[in-house]
Amino acid sequence: MTTGARSPAEPRRIRRPTRTFVSLTGPAGNIGDALIRRGGLEWAIGTSDELVAYTGAGPDVWLRQLGVPTGTRVLRSKRSVARWLWLLATSPGRPVLVFEAGEVPLDRGNVLRETVFLAETIIVRLKRGVVVRPPRGIRAPTNLALWLHARAARLSQFALWRESGSAALAGGERVVPDIGFGAGLRPGLPDGERDELVVSLRGTRPLPGATWVAAVRDTAASAGLRIRTVVQVREDEQRARELADALGGVFDPWGDTDPIVQEQTLRDRYDRARLVISDRMHVLVLAALSGAVPVELVPHPTGKITAAFASIGLHDLSRDYATTDAPAMQRFLKAQIERSEEVRLRVSDAAAQLAYIESEVRETIRAARA
């Protein structure tokens, strides 16, 4: 008998199929949301024989934006939540559950949702599987929802936070870059060839006043930059049009453009920008990945952007213009333009950290199934 051969009486070990669950909800009209959901999906792809994705009300174009692989079992609408839970509960041993990256609302209306998420986490851990919570931030915490969320996070092998404040609220320890920084570094144009100052602001906030407009226009003129306004979230389109009129800039509409094409167009714009001004975090993340300097210049900033960029070592990118006059705003903006090398270095480090975390996640899953 050959050494190491299996005895005829020895039962054949049958390998059971494995299953990964990933949550991918979000509006197709928000490229920042697509960016971070895609990041979570990339961590999930290839970790199991079967991929199950819950996309909520996401339309077909949302699946294309994220790059959901052919063969994925896609569950849509709230009516499929029961099916999702059944598949999770009846899945073979050692399943993988990947939650969504991004901002987590924990107001009173989310207690039931957090209860379900805690139950999902417990199911996976009882099956000796792996739970991954990609980089997240907490918004509007209330006691019970926060307590449930913190319990679930502590039961997860990976509970990652994109800023220290959220980590402290949940009793977490691991603060890492926002997953959007893993969306791919781009060389863009050399600094000397970058000729644009790009602006993209939320449509739900008041239109900036004359002092802000003067500061941005004068900064662009002194640096020899053309002003362009862009749309990364559909609901901001009218605001971008208004800003272009006020600033004497070029307006790039979204209109009927396919979201995938729109994302590529935006990244091309950021490739040639020296400075990008926005109060949308993932506008600034994509801008920084292209080598543009990201700046938040709005009245009463929330602190979310400041905290997320501080996590990768970039500070003093935000300024409250409600308490700043035009000359001070100009000095602030001109100083930011000179920070391109620092931005590239910090963003490169962030991308490397996220690549390492993804490899760590995959190794943890392999070890759980060994």
Results as ranks from 00 to 15, higher is better:
F332S: 01
F309M: 02
L118P: 03
I305K: 01
D271Q: 14
R16G: 02
G26T: 05
S318E: 08
G46L: 15
A350T: 00
P95K: 03
A215M: 09
W161Q: 00
P69E: 15
A307S: 12
R94D: 12
E263H: 14
Y321N: 03
G71F: 08
A44I: 07
F117G: 01
F332L: 06
V261T: 08
D245A: 14
P253H: 12
G109K: 03
R186V: 03
S23Y: 12
R331D: 08
L41N: 00
H300V: 09
R6D: 07
V347P: 01
A214H: 05
D107A: 11
A119R: 11
K127S: 12
A167R: 09
N30S: 06
P8E: 12
S80H: 09
V96D: 04
V295K: 03
D258G: 02
N143G: 13
S166R: 01
G137Y: 11
V124R: 04
T324N: 05
E50C: 07
L225N: 07
A153P: 03
G291F: 10
D245P: 05
G129H: 06
G203Q: 02
A322C: 09
L266R: 03
T302M: 08
S278L: 10
E50L: 10
D195R: 14
S77I: 11
L87V: 06
D107Q: 15
V132E: 01
A183N: 05
P134Y: 07
I260Y: 07
R366H: 13
T20M: 03
S164P: 04
P206V: 10
L297H: 00
A240H: 05
L189S: 04
D60P: 00
P177V: 01
G165C: 14
L41I: 08
A44P: 04
E296M: 05
V176F: 11
A328C: 09
E338S: 10
A220L: 08
S290E: 09
G180E: 11
A292N: 02
F99H: 04
T121H: 00
P206S: 11
G248A: 07
V175G: 01
V231E: 09
E10N: 11
R234K: 11
D349A: 08
R76N: 05
V198S: 02
R73Q: 15
P59W: 14
P134H: 07
L284T: 06
P8R: 13
L144W: 09
W147E: 12
R37D: 02
R369L: 14
A220Q: 03
A273V: 06
L189E: 14
A288N: 07
A328F: 13
A82E: 12
R73I: 07
V361K: 06
T364W: 10
A82C: 13
P259E: 13
L87W: 10
D316H: 06
Y270A: 00
A9R: 14
V276F: 15
E358L: 09
R76C: 04
A168P: 06
P59M: 13
P11L: 15
P59N: 11
S318T: 15
D195A: 13
R136I: 14
I36K: 01
A352S: 06
R369F: 15
R151S: 04
L146R: 13
T47H: 10
T90C: 05
L275H: 04
G171R: 12
V298G: 02
